[in-house]
Design a protein around this nucleic acid. Sequence first.
DNA 1: TCAATAGTTCAATAAGTTTTGAACAAAGGA
DNA 2: TCCTTTGTTCAAAACTTATTGAACTATTGA
Lengths: 122, 122
Amino acid sequence: MTLPHPTADQITLSNVLAALGDPTRLAIVGYLARREGQPTMCLNFTDFGSKTNISYHLAKLREAGITRTEVSGTSRLITLRRNELDSRFPGLLDSIIAAAVDLPMVKKIEEAAEEGLAQRDP
Amino acid sequence: MTLPHPTADQITLSNVLAALGDPTRLAIVGYLARREGQPTMCLNFTDFGSKTNISYHLAKLREAGITRTEVSGTSRLITLRRNELDSRFPGLLDSIIAAAVDLPMVKKIEEAAEEGLAQRDP
DNA sequence: TCAATAGTTCAATAAGTTTTGAACAAAGGA
DNA sequence: TCCTTTGTTCAAAACTTATTGAACTATTGA
C-alpha cells in the first residue's frame, strides 16, 4: 500500500509556501532536517501536537510535496523530498531549513529526544 | 505620516512563509520583482483584486516585513525589502522570486500593463 | 473652494483551516 | 488468537483568513 504523493512537476510554489506557513509544519520540517535524511516515525512528532493533529499536518506536508511517507509495518517513515524540491525550486528548501533548524519548537523537542524519551532509530 | 513596519529582527520565517503562501500575495511579490525595485503604486495591482482586497493583502505583506510602503501624496509606493530579507534569510527571497516571476497571474498583468493601461511610472 | 484621485477602515459574510475525541484498521508480537 | 502499537478517518467545533461594499480620509489640481 502506497500513499499518494504529487510528482515533482505537480509541486507548486504556492502550495509549498502555504504548507510551510504553519508553525507546526515548519517545526516538523526543521526537525526532519536535523535528522539529516534519517527516516522518522510520526510518533517522533507527538511533542508538536496530538496524534490526530500530527497526522493532519503530515498529510498536508505530503500533499504539498515536501515530505515522502513510506509505510513500514505499523509505522510510517517520513523523509524530506530534498532533491526533488531542490531541482524544482533551487535554493528554497536550503534557505528555509537554515532558519527552521534553530526554531525554539525544534530545539525543545530535540532536547526531549536527548533525554531518551523518543525513539531516534525506528 | 509613516506606516508601521517590523524591524529586520522582528521578521519571522513563519510570518514570511504564511504571507507568501497566499496566491494573490505571491503574485504581488512576483510583479514587484519584475519591476526591479521600481516603487509601485497600489493601483498597479488592481488586476489582482478589488481595491479593498489589495489594500488588505498589501497590509499583510508589509506587516510580515516583505514590503516597504512609503506615503507619497495620495499614493503609496511599494517596494520589496530585498536587502533586509536577504540578510535575515539568505537565499530565501531569491529562490521564491525566481519561481514567482513566471506565475501565470504575474504574466497576465504584465501583458495588461504593456497595453498601456497601467501606470508604469508613478 | 470643489471635485477627483488614491487608498483605508469598518462590519458583515463567505470560505477555509486547525484542533479535538471517538471509532476504526492493519501489522506484529506474546 | 488476542492484545498492543501505530497511525488513519470522520464529524463537529473553534478559529482564522479572505472578500465585499459602503463610508471615510487625505492630498492634489482646477
